[in-house]
């Protein structure tokens, strides 16, 4: 299974939920997230991990 399939699933999901407005926001925030991942070496376990 290619990782790219997640993006098509996400698109299908947004279509099904009729939440197209989330798409640009997700795009920008995930891009930002990618930068964070690239910039750091380890992920610190969050305090309230159940929520996210």
């Amino acid at each position: 299974m290619s990782r790219l399939s997640v993006f098509s699933e996400l698109w299908e999901f947004l279509k099904y939920r009729k939440k197209y407005w989330l798409l640009p926001i997700i795009f920008v925030l995930v891009l930002l997230g990618l930068l964070i991942v690239v910039a750091e070496n380890s992920v610190v376990a969050p305090f309230i991990y159940t929520l996210f």
């Binding site: 299974m1 990782r3 399939s5 997640v6 925030l29 995930v30 930002l32 997230g33 990618l34 964070i36 991942v37 750091e40 992920v43 610190v44 969050p46 996210f52």
Partner: peptide
């Protein structure tokens, strides 16, 4: 701050659960 902690977890792991 929460976002900064959550995003790496999602980008590294949680978006690719099927994989």
């Amino acid at each position: 701050r929460s976002y900064l902690m959550a995003m790496p977890l999602w980008i590294r792991d949680r978006l690719w659960i099927r994989d």
